[in-house]
């Protein structure tokens, strides 16, 4: 029998389709997603980074000036003071989430994953509810609750004999950021809770049984068996928290406006970016400096993600199942 097509060159895995038709199939399926994503996500991001290396001249044109914008941002006191203020505040914002939100999420997840628990679904569903709502709504709701005018918070503190603790927390420089951070924690605790809860469910019961047979009580079993197994998830939760926190804007804008007052005490990267880019009562909008701040945010987030990917995740994976 003749071997009609010795040594055929096969470019793709679909028999009976010409290379042209194959290319058309690929283009048909990939082009819409790639186009929209490139045009509205990748291109703007790159363009923003590029813009951060240009500055506006008096005649309105843009001229390349290297890293001058970054130097200005980090050294010129009119820029560096707000930048470092926002940066430090953002770190505080992040630390409060790490120290309050994630431990509470872990605790709730641990309780929810206990073997015999009634109303499990109800608890889970209800605790997750605030996460569903718009930050604008949450911000305003808490503003009302904390408002001395309505006095709900005061009433509660008084009920416990702690009335003296009450103060205009949102209005004072020393407490505004902490208060807003805690409100954010209140809203988003559902996310670490669900992620950790899922990871806990995935741990086979036999492991816990084995630990029980070895004589560990429930607390010991949790800390010595379950916790080590969910470190990767906690790592993931941490990096998600980091990215979201350094990208946050809505809550502070909704509660405090673009000025993130009093006296910028609640200013974070997101609000600083918005204010610089759009301008406000105090200054005109500045595209180049806005882009510079966005690029700094990009770099910060990138650092966080890289640290996670290359240091934390690698080390943790080894202990996973």
């Amino acid at each position: 029998m003749e071997t009609a097509s010795q040594g055929r060159v096969q470019q793709h895995g679909i028999v009976g389709m010409s290379p042209g038709a194959y290319a058309r199939v690929l283009i048909f399926f990939l082009a819409p997603a790639v186009l929209v994503y490139t045009l509205f996500s990748v291109y703007p991001l790159l363009d923003t980074i590029i813009s951060s290396f240009y500055s506006k001249q008096n005649d309105g044109s843009y001229v390349y000036n290297g890293v001058a914008n970054f130097v200005t941002l980090l050294t010129d006191p009119t820029w560096s003071a707000p930048f470092w203020n926002a940066f430090i505040n953002n770190i505080k914002f992040f630390l409060i989430h790490m120290l309050v939100q994630n431990p509470i999420g872990l605790l709730l997840a641990a309780l929810l994953s206990l073997p015999v628990l009634r109303f499990r679904t109800a608890y889970r569903t209800l605790i997750f509810m605030p996460t569903m709502l718009s930050v604008v709504i949450i911000g305003f709701t808490w503003q009302l609750i904390l408002s001395p005018l309505w006095g709900i918070a005061k009433m509660f503190l008084q009920a416990f004999g702690l009335g003296f603790l009450f103060g205009p927390w949102l209005g004072e420089e020393s407490t505004a950021l902490i208060t807003i951070s805690l409100i954010s924690v209140w809203q988003f605790v559902g996310i670490p809770m669900i992620l950790i809860y899922t990871a806990l469910l995935a741990i086979p019961d036999e492991l816990i049984d084995a630990a029980t047979v070895d004589g560990l009580n429930q607390f010991q079993a949790f800390f010595h068996v379950k916790l080590p197994l969910i470190w990767p998830t906690i790592g993931l939760v941490s990096v998600l928290t980091f990215v979201n926190n350094f990208n946050a804007f809505d809550l502070i804008y909704a509660m405090k406006g673009a000025l993130a007052g009093p006296n910028f005490s609640a200013d974070i990267m997101g609000t600083l970016f918005y204010r610089v880019f759009f301008g406000n009562q105090l200054q005109l909008g500045d595209v180049s400096m806005g882009a510079t701040i966005a690029t700094m945010m990009f770099l910060i987030i990138l650092c966080g993600v890289m640290i996670y990917l290359f240091l934390i995740q690698r080390r943790l994976q080894r202990y996973a199942f």
Partner: peptide
């Protein structure tokens, strides 16, 4: 015809189908 062949030929009912779709 679900897998492209590297070389050789397949015929069905006297017809070379090596390059035809399934």
């Amino acid at each position: 015809g679900l897998e492209p062949i590297t070389s050789g030929a397949i015929s069905i009912g006297g017809r070379n189908v090596s390059d035809l779709a399934p």
